[in-house]
């Protein structure tokens, strides 16, 4: 297999999607609401469908807004159901997102008679095709760059998330750790919750349009969970999660290109593997390695290492 400019773009889009998700994922993991990303990424389906049915066009912006609104509503409904329905957050999330997801599927089937709004495309995305949708062709030092739309959109999302985490670092830290104290100090934990959920919804929609929801769900949780095993400092955890996410994206595409060949499949014939799938798998592999080998919280150290305990005393 050879490496083309297209492969570079696929990796860049993958990195941008993974990093956007990982930045926010730290706070989902620390707030014990990891599944919120999962819920939102499924629940936005009716938002996409309704936006389409209302406007009758597949204009990206309306569908984007529709999906983002429903994504935020998912967070709102989840809180309502758990507050008034006397069920825990997990169950209430399950109720809300399965209902919305099913509703979305119904609507899409209705709409699909008329246009190509394909459920599997919404779910799995097509990162391999993103480089074909070029929106910008700047010329840099004489070389022409074909910048794909997904790269532009995800760069913006990534930048927004980065600014959010940098500027609200203190607020995110205190509302995630001790929401009650934060609220008594005037840093309203509820507002921060919904701000975070809004960004998760926007990121989810922007990313899965390009790369599919599997990678979104994986990157919201896995890099942050891996980073948490490696450090005791929030800032370091966020930095590590970003590096791990980017690494998983790079390794994911490389393995997707080459592994089928090593296994004897002819990539040209078998249509290779799914790049976003491999990116998610790589995130999982990095987690597994960390789980065993992490210097402090790794299974091996916990089982065989006595140095840590001796030092603690």
């Amino acid at each position: 297999m050879e490496w083309y400019a297209i492969d570079t773009w696929i990796v860049i889009v993958g990195i941008l999607a993974a990093v956007s998700c990982a930045l926010l994922g730290n706070f989902l993991v620390l707030r014990k609401m990891s599944m919120m990303g999962d819920a939102i990424s499924h629940a936005v389906l009716p938002g996409l469908a309704i936006a389409f049915l209302v406007t009758g066009a597949r204009a990206s912006l309306t569908m984007f807004i529709g999906a983002a609104v429903v994504g935020v509503l998912t967070a709102v409904f989840t809180q309502w159901v758990s507050r008034f329905g006397k069920v825990d957050e997990g169950a209430s999330m399950g109720i809300v997102f399965t209902t919305l997801f099913a509703l979305g599927l119904l609507l899409i089937v209705q709409a699909a008679d008329h246009v190509d709004l394909d459920a599997s495309c919404v779910l799995y995305g097509a990162i391999e095709l993103t480089p074909l949708d070029v929106v910008w062709r700047p010329s840099i030092f004489g070389a022409i760059l074909d910048v794909p739309r997904a790269a532009v959109v995800l760069s913006i999302v990534c930048a927004v998330n980065l600014l959010f985490v940098v500027f609200f670092f203190k607020e995110l830290r205190i509302t995630s750790f001790d929401s009650e104290l934060a609220t008594t100090m005037g840093i309203n934990a509820n507002w921060m919750h919904y701000l975070l959920m809004t960004l998760v919804a926007i990121t989810t929609v922007a990313a899965f349009e390009a790369v599919g929801s599997i990678i979104v769900i994986a990157m919201l949780i896995v890099p942050a969970a891996t980073a948490h095993l490696l450090t005791d400092r929030l800032g370091v955890m966020i930095l590590l999660s970003v590096i791990l996410a980017a690494l998983a994206a790079v390794l994911g595409h490389i393995t997707a290109l080459f592994v089928p060949g090593w296994l004897g499949f002819d990539p040209a014939v078998v249509d290779a593997t799914s790049t976003s799938g491999m990116m998610a798998v790589m995130a999982g592999v990095l987690f597994a390695i960390t789980l065993f080998c992490a210097p402090r919280y790794g299974i091996l150290i916990k089982k065989f290492g006595r140095i840590d305990r001796a030092e603690a005393k």
Binding site: L30, K32, I174, F177, A182, T184, H228, D232
Partner: peptide, 24 residues
């Protein structure tokens, strides 16, 4: 707040937690 109301595995040091008192 009650001690059980927070997650003590949160990646912060004792100093970080005490400094939160100044956030307001």
């Amino acid at each position: 707040p009650q001690r059980e109301s927070v997650d003590w595995d949160f990646p912060v040091s004792a100093l970080d937690v005490v400094a939160m008192g100044t956030y307001g």
